[in-house]
Amino acid sequence: MNVFRLLGDLSHLASIIILLHKIQTTRSCRGISFKTQALYVAVFVARYPDLLFRFISFYNSIMKLIFIASSCYILYLMRYRFRPTHDPSIDTFRVEYLIGPCFVLGLIFNYGFNMTEVFWSFSIFLESVAILPQLFMLQRTGEAETITTHYLAALGIYRALYIPNWIYRYFTEDGVVDPIAVTAGIVQTGLYLDFFYVYFTKVLQGEKFELPA
């Protein structure tokens, strides 16, 4: 565990808290892509079955449980509690175009051809693109509530911080590197660059998040 990794995980945790806070206080899931949230449930469920048969650390298990539970809870809030506030007509990204190719990539690139490993790889690839329905929705509406942009920024920063974490681990742990996670992680961070640009130049200067027409 190094400082980048810890801050990354805390940023991930913060993003979940911000999202829950947004839904609860505005009593609305407006501006949030149900499809992206559903993909995160798929990501965590595919990646963390090792909870059942392998103990890594208390920290590791607790975080995994929090991610699975909170992502399911968010889906529940969107699907049942605040269903009328979600507009499916703007959440139109075709997720099958993400799930299919990610599964094929998981079959090709993995660390062992068995269920656990293929699903692990699949989850890594899927996580890297899971934000696309959300960004697509943002693109369509051209604007976002400030709190929603804080959520997205925390989520993007989480992945961005994993990159210095890998560099740090590479140099301090004798060349340790995970090519699948690193490749997917760089792609995932790259997807946020446009968003980060607007977030840091506008939202953090006190302006509303608006995309140029």
Binding site: D9, I56, N60, M63, F67, Y111, R169, V177, A181
Partner: peptide, 10 residues
């Protein structure tokens, strides 16, 4: 607990 492999990052 075993040392965390890069694969076991969250």
């Amino acid at each position: 607990p075993v040392k965390e492999h890069p694969k076991d990052e969250l």
